[in-house]
Design a protein around this nucleic acid. Structure first.
Lengths: 337, 337
DNA sequence: TTGAAAGCGCTAACAG
DNA sequence: CTGTTAGCGCTTTCAA
């Protein structure tokens, strides 16, 4: 009586072949759907498929990929999951990948540039067919690493110069949003007042574009943005909270309005307001990024919502075309409400 | 002059071996860190590592996994990304997996039971070493499928009978939360009143436990829960919104308080309130799941926050122990604020 | 201290 | 209509 439970080796196409009395290549052909070109008889095909189904057999994708030099894996590098913008990107990416018969693997780098590169290398070592860099700090470096391995890359959210990019129309979205907040302030105080700008990185394309729009919107309102009220302290909520503290210390009053660059920054700003000004009316806020609950906190919070659906449609179109140029596609942003 | 750009085949250990003049097996040993046991000279090891580093060489994990019968991949099946509970599970899972030298692959099934099974099978075909079923509709089926392939599984969030499970103390958390909401209502109206219960599936363990606590908390307050006010209409925001519509139609007034089962349901409930009762005070709400923005909407919204950190620590402990029993571990839930 | 060789499971020529 | 064979890139005995 054997007590040693043998390692439950997964069945292979050879097992199926043996069971039916055909060769492994026949099984392979049937399971891959190219049995017409191999002119395998419908009966054999049917018998093979029956056995495979009965056992719930699935091809070993590792072996298949090794042999075919093509894994059907598609990788995405993503900064965070914890906000509606990125989480909907993740969900829609997975869904669209599956529809196309690709297996999506998403890897989250917590906005750590070092991790981003490591993630790219790891994806390559698992032989993904394609890499999407989402909101990457240094997309071009990722593109280079992947190009050296012969793997296509695409940028999403933040653009790069060495791969096609699908991004939001940050300038347009921020111009409209800033305009709305300025108008709301003016409607209340009677005259336009400069807004604060909190969050984001002064070095990333999106923040630069939003800042450009921020300044232009001020100009259009006949005032100048005040540089000391622009605090691009990063995307973390804690940093945004500190920024407001700093602002409150430096100014006699809180600004009448604030442009908040990302929902994570908004989290910090709101935390500060609740802690330090409980019960007081909040400044008018323009949040570049949408969150359903944040939208309910106060009517003074206005939002710009990025059009994730369209962005991903365009991304997958680009991939289907196998485009290798470095086009940048900008998608309009919706104003909420 | 060759115009045809040869397909950029990735370099292999043979290339490195050839370049240095050693054999592939030597390179393999060095790159895997077991060169001491093979007693390879420090100089050779150093030379190999130098070349590998210079080229940014990374082992082909497909081939490696095929040969070793061990992929270092760890799969997680997850219902949604779009709320703070699941998104923090995803982030922490990835982080912990990486620390342990595993490569996490998360796959999101949009709460579709059919997709869950398909996801399990796909993970198996990519030869993951281990599968975590998070919030799965039918975790036992997933366990069975994986067991047949010799792959360990663990359940997270929702328990199963055929693998170890790490879940929240749903009963305890819901008892306290219901109690808090009942007390808030009583403080306002002078006497305890039955709450409504909205969201979740009547068939899943967590909802059943929370409902049991919901009823017990009512009993402890000296009243009975009203069955017609219990609407377990699923986790989707739209369904929760419909549930409130239904409730509003059936009752003379809105209930004084509502137990909302998940933040997605809360989204629907809040949407309804804003649409149909704008400007009116909202009922007291107990949300089983935390969201930072929802917490700021109204002081009448109380929350129970599941302790994701502890849950994942315990999960990875379980995996490290390679436990195969079907223990169920319950983690206390924190009350917010 | 190292190399040769077999084989993981699969696919794709090629040969019948 | 189908089987044989070589080999994808790696690890791991076994021999030297």
């Amino acid at each position: 009586m054997p007590t040693k439970s043998e390692p439950p080796r997964q069945t292979t196409i050879y097992d199926i072949a043996g069971e039916i009395g055909v060769s492994a290549s026949t099984v392979s052909a049937v399971l891959n759907g190219n049995w017409k070109t191999r002119r395998i008889s419908a009966t054999t095909a049917e018998r093979i498929r029956a056995v495979a189904d009965r056992q719930g057999f699935a091809l070993n994708q590792q072996a298949r990929a090794l042999r075919r030099q093509r894994s059907n894996l598609i990788g995405m590098i993503m900064p965070k999951y914890d906000n509606r913008y990125f989480s909907s990107i993740a969900e829609q990416f997975e869904q669209r990948a599956r529809v196309r018969g690709l297996f999506p693997i998403i890897t989250c780098t917590s906005r750590d540039p070092e991790l981003e590169l490591q993630a790219a290398r790891t994806l390559l070592s698992y032989k993904v067919d394609c890499v999407i860099a989402t909101g990457a700090t240094n997309p071009d470096l990722i593109s280079d690493i992947c190009r050296a391995a012969g793997v296509r890359t695409y940028n999403l959210d933040l653009p790069g110069a060495r791969a096609p990019s699908v991004i939001s129309d940050n300038y347009g979205g921020a111009l409209a949003l800033t305009g709305r907040v300025l108008a709301a302030c003016a409607a209340q105080t009677g005259r336009p007042e400069p807004l604060a700008f909190i969050g984001g990185r002064a070095t990333d394309h999106n923040t630069m574009e939003r800042l450009r729009a921020f300044r232009d919107a001020h100009a259009q309102a006949g005032i100048a943005a005040r540089e000391e009220m622009i605090l691009t302290t990063g995307y973390a909520a804690e940093r945004a909270e500190q920024a407001v503290t700093q602002l409150a210390a430096a100014l006699p009053d809180l600004p009448a309005g604030i442009f908040v660059n990302s929902t994570s920054a908004l989290e910090g700003v709101m935390r500060w307001l609740r802690t330090h000004h409980p019960g007081m009316p909040i400044p008018h806020i323009g949040s570049f990024d949408w969150d359903p609950f944040a939208a309910l906190i106060d009517p003074r919070i206005l939002m710009a919502r990025q059009d994730v659906e369209t962005m991903l449609d365009l991304l997958f179109d680009l991939m289907a075309d196998r485009r290798r140029d470095c086009a940048r596609i900008e998608v309009p942003v919706r104003q909420i409400p």
